[in-house]
């Protein structure tokens, strides 16, 4: 079909590259948004996780130390059983998964609310040093960091994607140009006989769209299976580290496929149009 196979391959590769990077950026941003949504509910809470089987006097000491701290509005104890109940509620449809647990893996904790976020940092630092405190989680912090991180990814991603789209359009327009010039004689005759621009453009635009769709197919396969693999091996670990879940690959597959197909076809069509512009004015 192509006189120049190399150019066709270059076109497809460039479109695939654009879409793959788009896919990675998209998944990252989605996952981060997921994490932010997840934690936003606990926005003004500081969670203090306790070591297992802490003696009562240690707990009293922690409670007192916190109450003495300025700006503390309330401190509530949440047992590991309560924590599990809450988790079941949050997981709703998937709660049955928790029923399978033999022991409750969640720790006892204190939920602290502050008057004003101003006090939070100091409080977190102080509580961390207390005996019997396993870990302190302050979600405002995490959210801020995640949002900034997401912002960078979004910005960098858009920049790279923009550049790559530009390059792809350029490569495709050159590919189509080769086909166009190999059929220049035919186009010329078509014009003299009164073919409309649409009629002349049609096959070339189809060729561009075809290249774009092929590129989209390749990238969707790579992104989907690549991400699925990553998801399977990393989801648990990421949750342990950062308490957030990745977006489930199955949930985004359809949207991703539609988006990739549309963008791929769009880039292909645009590339053709750019290369045909020159030929339309005679």
């Amino acid at each position: 079909m192509w006189r120049n196979r190399g150019m066709g391959i270059a076109s497809i590769t460039s479109i695939s590259a654009v879409l793959m990077i788009l896919g990675v950026v998209l998944i990252l941003v989605l996952s981060i948004n997921n994490a932010v949504l997840d934690t936003k509910l606990k926005f003004d809470e500081i969670e203090v996780f306790l070591v297992d089987d802490l003696p009562n006097q240690s707990m009293d000491r922690i409670e007192e130390a916190v109450k003495e701290h300025p700006g503390v509005l309330s401190i509530i104890f949440r047992s590991k059983e309560q924590a599990l109940e809450i988790m079941k509620e949050e997981w709703a449809d998937e709660a049955y998964l928790l029923d399978g647990l033999e022991t409750n893996p969640l720790p006892d904790s204190y939920i602290i609310k502050v008057n004003d976020i101003e006090y939070a940092d100091g409080l977190v630092n102080d509580v961390k040093t207390l005996d019997g405190v396993e870990e302190v989680k302050y979600y405002k912090d995490v959210i801020d960091k995640l949002l900034i991180f997401a912002g960078y990814i979004q910005f960098g991603g858009i920049l790279i994607i923009g550049i790559l789209v530009f390059i792809s359009v350029f490569i495709i327009s050159n590919t189509i140009k080769i086909t166009v010039s190999s059929r220049r004689r035919e186009i010329n005759i078509m014009k003299y006989v009164g073919a409309t621009n649409g009629y002349i453009r049609g096959p070339f635009i189809m060729e561009g769209i075809f290249l774009g769709i092929i590129g989209a197919l390749i990238s969707i396969v790579i992104v989907y299976f690549g991400y699925q693999y990553f998801y399977k091996s990393m989801n648990e670990k990421l949750y342990d580290l950062f308490t957030f879940y990745l977006v489930d690959p199955k949930l985004i597959f359809t949207d991703l496929a539609i988006m990739f197909g549309t963008i791929g076809a769009g880039i292909g069509a645009l590339g053709s149009l750019v290369s045909l512009k020159r030929f339309l004015n005679v």
Partner: peptide
């Protein structure tokens, strides 16, 4: 306008010295 040109050309057949066949 450009988009009307094809319809004008359908009213005017043309033959050249160099035949221009496919």
């Amino acid at each position: 306008p450009n988009r009307r040109i094809p319809y004008i050309r359908r009213k005017v057949g043309v033959v050249f010295q160099d035949f221009r066949l496919l």
